[in-house]
């Protein structure tokens, strides 16, 4: 078991024939991901990396039965690509591209939600179910199979956390890089319950950052609904206060988004909050041991 994706998941790549799309699609295929084709407008009919290229997502879905799309198109075209995927009945879009305008993502996310399509990202490393299916740009070899679920706003910290977990002799069920943009797809509040329901997952690592209040919302949810141990690290405890023009954003969310505030809320919800990023792995091991002894 795992969440969202596994060895049977059929994936298409939007922006398949571009430099990034080509490189990472190949890496995903090498990992074992079922990449069944790709979409690049005006290149329909071609074969790329041994897979068919289509002009539209609709054609690609019809021909391949793909349910997931990995999106690599340039920032200015991301919203269009997401909405095309939603329109074609894709169930999950994994948006890797960095630098998409916030306003575009606002419209794209609204439309995806309306069409019932889940999204991950943008500006994220993607999702990986260890030793089964990698949809993204993460180094696959770091994710060994195990019983720890991982949710992270940051790319390299996801790798760092997974590496530490593996060094403890443990492993990962599924790791999801949710990205840190102002508008993102699946977040802690959707993913935590998925891990809670997943039989194989026994502990959940959650990596947060300063800014926004997603971690505060997550703390509320953990307190009410999550029974599995959660281990959290919040990056940016020492970040200086931003020399911003104003703090209207913080006023809207009703919190200032500091690491201290988030750590406090998580601790209050019974989460194992790690102060040093070097202690993620050992704390996971400790939490699992404590759970066993209960």
């Amino acid at each position: 078991m795992s969440i969202l994706v596994n060895k049977d998941t059929k994936v298409i790549v939007q922006g398949f024939t571009g430099k990034e799309g080509t490189f990472h699609a190949q890496q995903c295929m090498d990992y074992g991901t079922q990449i069944v084709g790709g979409v690049t407008p005006n290149k329909g009919g071609m074969t790329h990396l041994g897979k068919p290229v289509f002009n539209t997502v609709e054609e690609a879905v019809k021909a391949t039965g793909a349910t997931v799309s990995m999106i690599f198109v340039p920032p200015a075209f991301v919203a269009d690509a997401v909405m095309e995927a939603a329109d074609a009945g894709i169930e999950l879009a994994v948006i890797i591209t960095e630098g998409a305008p916030v306003r575009d993502m606002m419209y794209a996310k609204h439309y995806a939600t309306k069409k019932g399509m889940k999204t991950i990202g943008p500006n994220c490393p993607g999702i990986i179910t260890a030793e089964e299916c990698k949809i993204g740009i993460m180094p696959g070899n770091i994710f060994k199979k195990g019983n720890v679920g991982l949710i992270s706003k940051s790319g390299t910290l996801t790798y760092e956390a997974s590496n530490q977990v593996v060094k403890e002799g443990l492993g990962i069920t599924t790791a999801v890089g949710i990205g840190g943009d102002p508008i993102i797809g699946l977040s802690y509040k959707e993913l935590l319950p998925m891990f809670e329901e997943d039989d194989e997952t026994e502990a959940i690592v959650m990596i947060g950052e300063i800014g926004g209040d997603l971690e505060i919302q997550a703390a509320k949810l953990i307190k009410e609904k999550i029974t599995k141990p959660v281990i959290a690290f919040i990056a940016g405890q020492t970040a200086p206060k931003g020399k911003r023009m104003g703090h209207a954003g913080a006023i809207v969310s009703g919190s200032k988004g500091t690491a201290q505030e988030k750590m406090e809320a998580l601790r209050e919800a019974g989460v194992y909050v790690v102060e040093s990023p070097a202690d993620i792995g050992v704390t996971v091991a400790k939490a699992l041991k404590e759970r066993k002894n209960k």
Binding site: K153, L157, I207, E209, A235, T238, S276, P277
Partner: peptide
């Protein structure tokens, strides 16, 4: 450091 999250975490651990 490579990556913004790890860069922030690195500052955190130096302080720690």
């Amino acid at each position: 450091v490579n990556g913004a999250g790890l860069a922030m975490a690195t500052m955190d651990i130096i302080k720690h």
